[in-house]
Design a protein around this nucleic acid. Sequence first.
DNA 1: TGCTCCGATGTAACTAGTTACATCGATGGG
DNA 2: CCCATCGATGTAACTAGTTACATCGGAGCA
Lengths: 333, 333
Amino acid sequence: MRRATIGDVAAQAGVSTATVSRVVNGGAVAEPTATRVWAAIARLGYSPNALTRGVFAGRANTIGVVIRDLRSPFYLDLIRGIDEVADAQGSLVLFANTFRQVHRELAHVHTMDEQRVRGLIVTTGESADGRTRRMADTGVPVVVVARTVPDPPAGMHSVSLDNVEAGRLMGVHLAGCGRSFVGVVTSGNRPSQVERTAGLRLALAEADLSLPDEAVVVADSEEEVGDAVGALLARARARDEPLDAVVCTTGRLTVAVHSALTAHGLTVPDDIAFLTMDEFPWSAALGITVVAQPSHEMGRRAAELVVERPAESVQVVFEPTLVARRSCGEGHR
Amino acid sequence: MRRATIGDVAAQAGVSTATVSRVVNGGAVAEPTATRVWAAIARLGYSPNALTRGVFAGRANTIGVVIRDLRSPFYLDLIRGIDEVADAQGSLVLFANTFRQVHRELAHVHTMDEQRVRGLIVTTGESADGRTRRMADTGVPVVVVARTVPDPPAGMHSVSLDNVEAGRLMGVHLAGCGRSFVGVVTSGNRPSQVERTAGLRLALAEADLSLPDEAVVVADSEEEVGDAVGALLARARARDEPLDAVVCTTGRLTVAVHSALTAHGLTVPDDIAFLTMDEFPWSAALGITVVAQPSHEMGRRAAELVVERPAESVQVVFEPTLVARRSCGEGHR
DNA sequence: TGCTCCGATGTAACTAGTTACATCGATGGG
DNA sequence: CCCATCGATGTAACTAGTTACATCGGAGCA
């Protein structure tokens, strides 16, 4: 069945396409004419072509979102926040996942540009910054999430977390719980990860505790976590300072790190304190203390920046909060 | 900065727009001309307008996905599967979330139609079926996920789970673990939920166990789960047949039901067996037995149906698998 | 040398809408 | 009674591309 065009509707109603367009978009049309046109629209099942509208308007009414890793609970809430704002605007979300592969970042940003999205939200690394900067220059607001951008052009914004503070909250809490020997599982060398570790080190130092380099291990994927945690525990034992706390700086690895501790026969919090990033559905039930990002709110803010198109570059930094539960033992419930 | 059009590129390169189009899309163009055109494209930062292409082609190269509830782990994996196939096709995913609100289903399907998506995947209820059927009639493949469609038109397909079998697997497992008094927490009256409960009842009957109506409670949201579980336990005690197993028929409520049991002072599996739907990140770590759907594979299959556009309606039914862990006690680890 | 044929390129019509401007008939004031 | 004005509607140009067809020039062959 061929799809009805505005021309078909016009012919049915015995008017010109201009009149149909006016009826649909609320121009000045006489009552009986409008009725006839609506009847024709209903009869033919006409639905206006949003692509054509977009061509004429110079922009689609979609918001592009390029996500690094859908699995992370952070991104899930972020998307919900974006979707809420987009929905309220009558916009749709054009969505792409890079599966943590750098070459896909650029490809997806490119495609978003071709799709003439009205704004772009990316959670990716720097690799695509050249292209996103150019998009910002052509008037498409770009929001970088979970990272700040050096020397951003006017149309390029960022929504990020105070990662140093996140680390500090962790350190202060652990010290307050009487823990002395802290190990860290972190993921790669993205700025967010480095800053969290730095903040943690800072807060520990203020409590006269040290965080030596050998107490920090890197795991890029869940598969690497088992070995990383094993190495961490072994090193500490070798120093004769067995760990009494393990921190995970990324929500993506929470399960894996927790499982690794359990697999080593350690009980949380009696044998070891456990502290991780990001709220997740089971955190309350399991009593795991986390440093939470307002991920939903961050998604909303990112989408709002797309909608509001501020004239100057805006850098929004959200503050993390520590949600104290049982996993670090004493002093906090 | 104004965005370069094909006309600007043509002027720069001293050729016609037709030639530029041929260069970009691989028509017959002499070598030196092509070089000149590519240089102009690079200089002007030209990126072809996908909207215009879509207008001419009659279709965008996006796949529309209308999701009921992003929070459910099932949908997350489903989306990843869809995204994988779309990505391999050079398509993008146009994405909308209905937040379980019926009026949004129709609105979003409508918008997807306007966007001239090349195919539509919906996980929604029947409310929008009228519109999706018409879309299928105009040649847009529609795939309904997690539900079958009565008397579907040629272009309308479904990807669903054998829900009766899912219930049966649960019943057989519980009987095998020596459990006798089973309670069920289910969510609303969607066919999937009803069928799972029916399958469970069937399997229990085969083991000479009954599942009376008062052992089935409904909770539509996480907030209602506490009261529902409380009522379930109280009723069983009143019958002098305290429950030794609780089944949750939807992955969305797993945390809430598990928490409610714990809140009532019950230990899993010693006091009570717990069995739920859908794998989730913590299931292995917590030792919770689940009936898993191949959600990722279901997403892939749904997207493949969009891409392959089979001439006749295709109904794909996936089989669930029971992943036995510790939460039902004896006989299985 | 003249004709044919072919590859390269331009012209213009087309997609499905929107909108500036022109036109038309009716109304109302002078 | 005539002309100005106004609301309703049509005409046609416009968006940014694609593509069928026309044209042009040179190579190859008789």
